[in-house]
């Protein structure tokens, strides 16, 4: 049966991994290919690379980096950050990315979801949503969480699904960095509103958090960053724990 996915996320700036990566035996912790290789050995199910510079000048080097990753890593990976139009998407996919993740531009120009999923297939169009609790719902933020927009996250996820998105990458801004666990309520609400897979993100701090997310929300995947980068847990530990709890994972 289809297994639940565990996905490490790497932030990339000027083609280097940023936000400390602390593995033993890593010669260059800033080299995205080398870090990706470590996660591949650990049987990560996918990788997400987020370009946090995402400036125009950096697009070309990002494309080169994606090419290098694709030539060295035989596992699926998603690239996001600063995607503006379908040319950006085509470039990244042709360079070897399996999926692209679109956040701000999907909100500003929802037609991009329709256009690109028709062109490239919905399976490679991930819509990333940053959401923050607001009264009785969750509000969508864009521009790296800096700008609130007048959209309800659950409604927006549903809309993105209808427009042709193949997956939702859902980050709880309230839980991100807290290590208090995933936002189960937000995730559950989004999973129930859409028919496409949902990746939960933000808040993983303990093994139980992964189990809680899978067992209580129906998410298809859990994403985490610092937890893996600082080797608080290896991917294997997470998977062993999940398997012990009866969750189907690839080992």
């Amino acid at each position: 049966m289809l297994t639940k996915r565990i996905i490490p996320c790497l932030d990339i700036k000027d083609n280097r991994v940023v936000k400390g990566i602390k593995f033993l035996g890593l010669r260059d912790a800033g080299d995205p290919v080398e870090v990706a290789r470590i996660y591949e050995e650990q049987l990560a199910d996918e990788l997400v690379f987020l370009d946090i510079t995402a400036s125009y000048e950096n697009r070309k080097t990002l494309v080169n980096l994606v090419e290098e990753i694709a030539q060295n890593i035989f596992m699926p990976f998603t690239v996001g950050g600063g995607i503006r139009d379908s040319n950006d998407i085509r470039e990244l996919l042709n360079a070897g990315a399996d999926k692209v993740s679109i956040n701000t531009q999907a909100v500003k120009c929802p037609d991009l979801i329709t256009e690109s999923s028709r062109k490239f297939g919905s399976q490679c169009i991930v819509v990333a949503i940053d959401a923050k609790k607001e009264n009785d719902g969750w509000q969508v933020y864009i521009n790296g969480g800096r700008t609130p927009v007048d959209l309800n996250a659950v409604e927006w996820a549903k809309k993105a699904n209808e427009l042709g998105a193949g997956e939702i990458l859902l980050t709880s801004m309230d839980y991100d960095g807290t290590k208090d666990g995933y936002d189960l309520e937000l995730t559950k609400n989004v999973v129930e509103a859409v028919s496409i897979p949902v990746i939960a993100s933000g808040g993983a701090g303990k093994l139980e958090h992964f189990y809680d997310c899978f067992s209580q929300t129906g998410a298809s995947a859990c994403l985490a960053a610092s937890l893996f980068h600082y080797q608080e847990y290896t991917i294997k530990q997470v998977k062993d724990f999940l398997k012990g709890k009866g969750v189907s994972v690839r080992q």
Partner: peptide, 15 residues
């Protein structure tokens, strides 16, 4: 087919 618990696309590792 769209069925509860089986998101489409079928995405990930399967046997």
């Amino acid at each position: 087919l769209d069925r509860k618990g089986f998101a489409v696309p079928h995405m990930g590792w399967n046997q």
